[in-house]
Design a protein around this nucleic acid. Sequence first.
DNA 1: CGATCGCCGGGAAAATTTCACGACGGTGCA
DNA 2: TGCACCGTCGTGAAATTTTCCCGGCGATCG
Lengths: 220, 220
Amino acid sequence: MSAADATILLVDDHSVVREGYRSVLQKQPGLRVIAEAADGAEAYRLYKSEAPDLVIMDLSMPGIGGIEAVRRIRQWDKSARILVFTMHENAGFAVQAIRAGARGYVTKTSPPETLVRAVMDVLAGKIAISPDIDHELALSRLAGESSAADVLTPREFEVLRLLLAENTTEEIAETLHVSPKTVANLHSLIKDKLGVGSDIELVRLALRQGILTEVDLGEA
Amino acid sequence: MSAADATILLVDDHSVVREGYRSVLQKQPGLRVIAEAADGAEAYRLYKSEAPDLVIMDLSMPGIGGIEAVRRIRQWDKSARILVFTMHENAGFAVQAIRAGARGYVTKTSPPETLVRAVMDVLAGKIAISPDIDHELALSRLAGESSAADVLTPREFEVLRLLLAENTTEEIAETLHVSPKTVANLHSLIKDKLGVGSDIELVRLALRQGILTEVDLGEA
DNA sequence: CGATCGCCGGGAAAATTTCACGACGGTGCA
DNA sequence: TGCACCGTCGTGAAATTTTCCCGGCGATCG
């Protein structure tokens, strides 16, 4: 491990999976894994104390998720290099991750070579997107699926989040201090803007776009 | 690798993750990974040709999912030993997996020792459940959450699946060759039986119970 | 200043959900 | 055999919700 080795921080809540990253990266000369984190908060702490050249970050994690961790790390170090490595094969997550400041997005279905290649690219200052996500992004463009975060106003987005999280229209109206009628109107407007006909479709869209994750659903 | 080594088939659609299993299991004497599969169909083929002593199986995979793969393998070999190793920490999936014939259920958040221990237990003929899932199962018992598959009649369950998968009531009525009114009635009855007030809650419940997985949502 | 946009809600029509009810076939049981 | 029960399907009417159209208010922009 020469002084020129690139240092890496691994972030994934599954220890056996981190073991896999390690194994793959060890075979590559010039890379050195110096730390591992199991959630976003720990990742942030370790980034500050270890100052790695690169972070490989999973998205779905307990507590602070990967997207938020990316945001925080980038806020602390504007030049941080973060490669997102996740199971989510939908374009919505990729867009969110890149906007949050990630320099790459690779899915876990990719072969090890793709991961290694992406690591090298990001270290070289390039943006790395795995081929399947490139394709997804192209498709979502073609399908013209409106990304919720873009087409919705802040208030509408807030209502959407509450609709997915809370239960009744009345409860949401109360927490927002507005009339139930307004919530109902917004609810309808949101479905219209997103081009969905039913609440079930709405939830599906939200999941696809990463507004809601499967783990979010469980805890409520 | 002595002749007494226990042979193992790894099934996971993420190659880097399989690498992790390998790495962990290799450190354990007496175990030998003889094959890897990336989806349920391949797992079934390889089980038949390789006849491993144990299968370590992920659940969420493209095409034939893990549950179905467990079912098929067990159908072909009633004494197959399958350990499910997955990210899903909800009791619903565990119940489904065990009913399908799995001999163990361990979550990926578990430390490597737990996985190794479970492998040994299953090989010894025991049923292995990781502590977090034990806890989840206990909770779901206490909460008395009615499991959809139990409380719903076959027809109702079918309608529920279609509600989550298809779009409009009319489409479902057509595929089922019944009146849209009947579907609406069933829809209402289902929500009543499951104790949910809105469609959004319905989707959430379905996700918790593993009737629907996040990947299912994406492809429709 | 006029135009636009986000936000809030009322009113009324339109659609949906819910409820009560009946019919039919199958099953189990005395 | 008769009876009660359950699952499935459907109708009609009431209750509720969704949707559409409307106006008002404040902020922003050219």
